[in-house]
Each structure stands twice: as C-alpha cells, then as structure tokens.
Write a protein that binds this DNA or RNA. Structure first.
Lengths: 342, 342
DNA sequence: TTGAAAGCGCTAACAC
DNA sequence: GTGTTAGCGCTTTCAA
C-alpha cells in the first residue's frame, strides 16, 4: 500500500506512463512490458491510487445514494441494486442515511459534495428541500428515487403509487370493506407526494365504488412497527366501524395488525413493500409489491447516462406495482362483522 | 461545483494559502479575511475537493465496512452504527456487500484498496480468506466485526456466542426440552467460528444438564427465512422427537417456525438477533439480543484509534448477549408433548 | 498575518 | 511501443 507509480516505473525500468498504461485495458503497451510491469507492481504491492486518478481525470467515478433508513429492508434492497448497477458501469457508491432528519440530509449532501460524487440518487426525507437546493446549487446531477416532496419537479423513478392506491381500494371493496382508513406518514407540514398519490388512487376507486372516504379517514403514522401500533387506537377512536386499513408500508401494517389483534378486532389490513416476513403464515399480510429492483436500476442507469452524456436528465417514470393477496384481508374480510368486539 | 481554490483566491484578492487556511478551523487567518474569503467562496460555489486534499495529505479519511447482506437488518444496524461513529470522528464510510460470495468479497476489498480506505471493518463471508489476505498484504488496518473464520487470529469485536449458546441451552432445559437441535450455517468446508462457539456453549450446558447432544443434532441452513423453512423437514426426518431448536438467527428461526406450524407441530424455537418483527404477538419469537450497537461502536473506535496512533490493533473482545423469552419457547414448552402429531 | 513554491500520485498530450 | 512534460486542486513548509 506504499509503492507509487514512480517506484514501480523505476524498478521495472520503464516510464511512469508505461506503468499507468499497463493498468488500463487495451492500451498500446506490449504484452511483454505489461507482464513485467505487473510482476514488479505485485512485488512492490503497488495499487493505483483512485484519489490521484480522480484528481487528474476530473471525475470521481463515484455516486451517492441517500436513503432515509438503512435498516428498513425496502431501502436496503434499493441500496443493493443501486450498488450493483453502478458497479457494473464502473462506479462506486457511497451510502448515506438521513434517518428522516432534514439536518442529517443536508450534512450528508455536504459530504457528498466534498467527496465530489458525480451523481446523487436521493430518497428525500421530509418537508425541507435544503438538500436538494444544495445539489442544484452545486450542479450535481441527481435523481429522486421513490420518494420526493409534493412540489418536486425534477427527475425521478418511482413506484406508481396511484396504481398502488387503486389496487388496494379495489381489493378492499372486493372483500366487503365499507369503512376504509388510510395510514400514511406526514413530515413537517406536508406529506410525501408518494403518499398523496397513494391517497388519490385509493380515494378515486373508493368514490367510484360509492364507499365514503374523506379526510377524517386518513391517519398519520410513520413507517415503523412501533408507529403502526400506536396509531390504531386513534383510528378506532375516530372510526369505531373501521373494517379495512391501508398502511404506508408493511412495517407500519405489521404494527397495526399487532394492535388489532391485541384489542381483539378483525380488520382487513394491507401493507406496501411485501417484505419477506409478510409472507409468513403467521403474518400473512396482504401487500403491494413494488418493482423496487427495476426502479433502482433505472434510476441508476439514468443518472450514469446523464453523467456520461453530460446531459441533464429529465426522466420521470413510475413503475406499476402488483397486489399480493393474503389472509390479512382474505380472512378478516369474511369474519369481520361477526367477530367485532363492540 | 466548478470553482477551484485558485479562482477563489484570485477573486478575493488573496493567496491560495489564505483560502485553504480559511477553510480550516482555528488557523492564523484574520476574521476579516476569512469572512471575505467565505463570501467569495459562496458566490463562486466553491467547495474543497476531498480528492485533492486526500492526495496532498496522504490519507483519505475513509473507512470501509464490508457486510454479507445489507438487506439483513442485523447487518444494516451495524452499518448504521459504524457510519455514525465514524462520522463523529471525521471519517466517511463506504459500504460494501459480499452477498456471501467470496469472489464479491475479494472484488470489494480491491475497490477499497483502490479507494485508499484507511481502515476496514469486515464481516467475513465464508471459508475463503482471500479478502483478508489482500488486506494484510496491502497493510490496511482491519478489524473483524461479528463473524470471522475459525482459524482467524486477528483483531475483532464480536458478540459472545458461547454465552449465547449457553443462554439458549439453559432456557430450553428450563422449558422441558429433551431433544434439542441446532441449526447453523456452513460455508464451504468450515463453519463460522461464531457458530462453532454458539455450539460449544450450547453443548456444554446440554451436557451438564445431562441432555444428549451430538453431531447428528446439528443441521445446516443459511440465515434466511427460506432456508429455515427448508431445513425443518430434514430435522424432523433425523430427529422425529425434536422438541427444541436453536437457530443461527431470527430470520432462519422464523422460517423454521413457519414450517413447524405448517406441518402442525409444536416445538420450542429460539432465534438470535431479536429483530423488531420477532416481538410481534403473532410471532413472539424467543431470541437472543446481541449488543450490536456496542460491538459496532467499539470496532469502529478501535480501528480509528489504530489509524490515528499508527499502532496495529490487537483488540479481541466479545460482548455479552441477553435472552428475551417469548411464546415460541414458553407456550410450546408446555404443550409440546400432548400436541405432537406422530 | 500573509504569500511563494513545491509536490502528493496520477494521466494525457505530444514527442520520439 | 515508449518516454517527456505538464498539470489536476490542494496543503504545507518556509520566508516575508
């Protein structure tokens, strides 16, 4: 880890250029020289210094991905896909986490900027757009992945949440739901546009099915098990007749299911994400499977294309999800009235 | 994102040195000059270039963490903690994933080396030690986190798996288990030393409790729900009287529980990790909670200390886990005999 | 308190 | 097919 190109050159009796070129694919160097250089490099434990290379070439070959919560499997899978896609195209990825805190987001963006990442894939956290502003200001290409504020007009690749809302509503109606509730997160003053779209799709289908659905049936909870558990009593308080709940993600849905069970109710629940645990027989949570892999891949490809063609990216794309029907709606739908407690 | 220190210097009518110094804390520059420099820097959208800084200073202020599976919450939490701890000390972290594939591990290590990370926190994947060899060869400080091969003798911070095995065995005996099985992963020819230790602790307590426990009661499955589901029939085949199963992690345990339920058995199950979902009433999986945060913190601090003191690190530390008792052992322990199918 | 100059390790013109 | 030269953007002596 100590040797530089200079020492390798000297030791191999060639110029630095030759060494440099030997490490590049299909360069002009003869096989013999290349072999010799490689041998010496090996002996001297030489390895090209990316920082120097970047400095010289004026590009870091580095992307950043910013997610809200790395421990959430939904984001973790995105990170994995982005990483793999980027690597295939010769880019490294630095992963950052905002933990839903705007200040962390800004901090993360600053570090990306200093690291001279060439592109940013960003799952935006909340109502502050400071992070985005920084990216714009410093003219770093970015693309939103999955979530972004309601007034965002930049490039994105996301899951089609209107479709998701429609799927959920249609299914709830199918299983006989008359009093639906929607549980989605709210940060600061606004909601994510993803969840606004979810609501739009949900409300549209409910309306066409003549099921009343209004503001009073929308509840606020974050995307964790804990927050799901907490919100259920609020729902029950305002909607004692609730018989179907769509949650912002599976984790929240798991929490809601937990509370439903605890208080002895039977209410249809739908989550979003289709986590591995959701398919367990004991859980069997009906969920909306999002095309996360495709979304992440396309976002990554788009940003790299943008970087390499030096074009600004204008992609705005929403991919269609599918509904996975399980017991959390199928069983509860049948028994819910007879089993109700009150 | 375009301006360099030179342009800022020219525009502010000072030297590059002054600009550079203005961006460093408590340097000799006067407040007035600093303010002026900052203003100009802001106007020109100047931001120090880390690559150049690193090149000059000969250190990247970058750490790498390599995990096996980023979508596994166990690793994700470690990543989070490492990242936060490192950042507090002024280091960035690049995250890499081996996906349990030795070739990926080697590839990841190579990229770290090129990125000139100053230290590596590594959760090793399997029986190949190629990755580690590379790290040694290029003299990059490293510390193993949580898992490493059986013959590893380098620095590590890990969970005390002997203690974990003992806790589990003690508890299984408590709930009346007579025919225990152990399900742990095996990669290539060897097992992780973590799981060998788990077995040691488990076997020791079983022995002292006069419960027979030998090779034929140890089964092989990876750390995922799917592999847990698959292994159960093998267990049943070889041990029709099995009444207690300790799994290598919660995900695997969830899979085993799923299969137990599916085939209509009641068998005590213990997992390791205590994932959030494990505490759900519907799951209620008895699990061993590992001090992952502390482990990750200590590993990170140790490696940074090593880097800054230029000392090689010799820390070998195992932190004690605790047992969280839930229904997967408490209920099954009571009813298991009367409910058995065969 | 400030500036001039040297150089970190590498690559890309441009010679030869 | 190979070498010479000139920087990439920054920090750090050293001198003023």
């Amino acid at each position: 880890m100590k040797a530089t190109i200079r020492e390798v050159a000297r030791s191999a009796g060639v110029s630095e250029t030759t060494v440099s070129l030997s490490f590049q694919p299909n360069s002009r160097i003869s096989e013999a020289t290349k072999k010799k250089v490689m041998r010496v490099a090996g002996e001297l434990k030489y390895m090209p210094n990316q920082a120097a290379r970047n400095l010289r070439q004026g590009g870091s070959k580095m992307l950043a991905i910013l997610v809200n919560d790395i421990t959430n499997p939904f984001y973790a899978r995105m990170v994995r896909t982005v990483e793999a896609t980027a690597r295939a195209r010769g880019y490294n990825v630095i992963v950052m986490e905002s933990q839903w805190v705007s200040a962390c987001e800004v901090d993360a963006v600053n570090r990306m900027l200093e690291a001279r990442v060439q592109g940013v894939i960003i799952c935006q956290c909340e109502d502050s757009d400071e992070g985005l502003k920084l990216l714009k200001r410093y003219e770093v290409p970015y693309i939103a992945l999955d979530s972004f504020p309601i007034d965002y007009d930049g490039p994105y690749v996301a899951n089609d949440m209107i479709a998701a809302g429609k799927l959920a509503a249609k299914h709830l109606i199918e299983v006989g739901c008359k009093n639906p509730a929607l549980v989605i997160p709210k940060r600061g003053r606004r909601r994510f546009s993803s969840f606004i779209r979810l609501r739009q799709g949900f409300a549209a289908v409910m309306k066409s099915g003549k099921i009343p659905f209004g503001q009073s049936q929308i509840f606020n909870a974050g995307l964790t098990i804990g927050e799901g558990q907490e919100v259920f009593l609020q729902i029950l308080d305002k909607m004692p007749e609730v018989d179907g709940i769509l949650c912002g993600n599976d984790l929240c849905a798991l929490g809601v299911m937990e509370a439903i069970e605890k208080y002895g109710y039977k209410i249809a629940v739908i989550g979003i994400d289709d986590l591995p645990v959701s398919s367990l027989a004991k859980i069997s949570l009906t969920s909306i499977q999002q095309p996360c892999t495709a979304v992440s891949e396309q976002a990554t490809e788009a940003i790299i294309d943008g970087i390499e063609k030096k074009e600004s990216i204008s992609l705005q794309k929403a991919l269609t999800p599918i509904l996975i029907k399980r017991n959390s709606t199928l069983l509860t739908g049948i028994v819910k009235n007879s089993m109700r407690k009150h």
